[in-house]
Amino acid sequence: MIRILVVDDHAVVRSGLHLLLNGKHGFEVIGEAADGDEAIAKATELRPDVVLMDLSMPHGKDGLTATAELKRQLPDTAVLILTMHDDEGYLFRAIHAGASGYILKSAPHEELLTAIRHIAAGDAYLYPTATKRLMGDYMERMKRGEHTGTYESLSEREKEILAKVAQGYANKEIAEQLVISVKTVETHKSNLMEKLDLKTRPDLVKFAMKKGLLNFE
């Protein structure tokens, strides 16, 4: 059985998903949550295989914030975003937060069942038009010469800041050396770590070592 936690601020939606899924198709709904905070608490307690996560929840953490925190705490739990938002901004942010899938609430029931099976098996799932959008974005970035996830994708300023952060300089020191604001340093640092898919300073240092950037002279 694929064990599922349903997260949505509308009780009617939760009840409908419970009736659709529980005890059928090899699925078991083991819990429900009405907001992101409750979702994280329930997931930590129940350890579901899949979390069906709504995005817009007015109370507590929203779906994106909850997804990112849940994936940090339970990396083996797959998150499927189930939302009314057919918007590429939400789509890209959901993927960056760690979601394994993104599907619309207007999708047929059979598509939802397929999506759950896919992400429970460790695969990714996006509704068809979302896949086209991602491919379109990727091709457009390739045309502009942006090779995502590589050192070459960084701007010259980002490369400078990467080297200095890896060498142990604090944001304030980097700002003084480059004659820019601390806020600008923080923005560049966040962008470069996102481009390189690095999560921690040790990851950044290892990457910089491989690139031969740790010159302390």
Rank of each mutant, 00 (worst) to 15 (best):
A41E: 13
A41F: 05
K42M: 13
T44N: 13
T44F: 09
E45V: 10
L46D: 12
L46T: 12
P48D: 00
D49F: 11
D49R: 10
D49Q: 14
V51S: 03
L52S: 01
D54P: 04
D54Q: 06
S56Q: 11
S56Y: 09
S56L: 13
M57H: 07
P58R: 06
H59L: 14
K61W: 01
K61E: 08
D62A: 02
D62H: 05
D62N: 15
G63M: 01
L64Y: 00
L64H: 04
T65Y: 13
T65P: 08
T67Q: 01
T67N: 04
A68F: 09
A68V: 08
A68C: 09
A68W: 06
E69R: 07
E69H: 06
E69L: 10
E69N: 10
L70V: 03
L70D: 02
K71P: 06
R72E: 08
R72P: 00
D76F: 07
D76T: 12
D76C: 13
T77V: 15
T77Q: 04
A78V: 03
V79G: 01
L80C: 04
L80T: 00
I81H: 02
I81L: 04
L82M: 10
L82E: 03
M84G: 11
H85D: 11
E88N: 09
G89Q: 12
Y90Q: 03
L91M: 04
L91R: 06
F92A: 12
R93L: 09
R93Y: 05
I95S: 07
I95T: 08
H96T: 12
H96D: 15
A97M: 07
S100L: 15
S100I: 05
I103D: 06
L104T: 04
K105Y: 07
K105P: 00
S106R: 12
P108R: 11
H109D: 14
H109R: 11
E110Y: 09
L113M: 07
T114F: 15
A115I: 11
R117A: 06
I119A: 04
I119G: 04
I119F: 02
I119S: 05
A120G: 06
A121D: 15
D123F: 07
A124E: 07
Y125V: 02
L126W: 01
L126S: 04
L126H: 10
Y127L: 15
P128D: 10
T129W: 11
A130I: 06
A130E: 06
A130H: 02
A130W: 00
T131Q: 15
T131H: 15
K132Q: 12
R133A: 12
D137V: 13
M139R: 14
M139N: 13
R141D: 08
R141E: 12
R141V: 02
R144C: 02
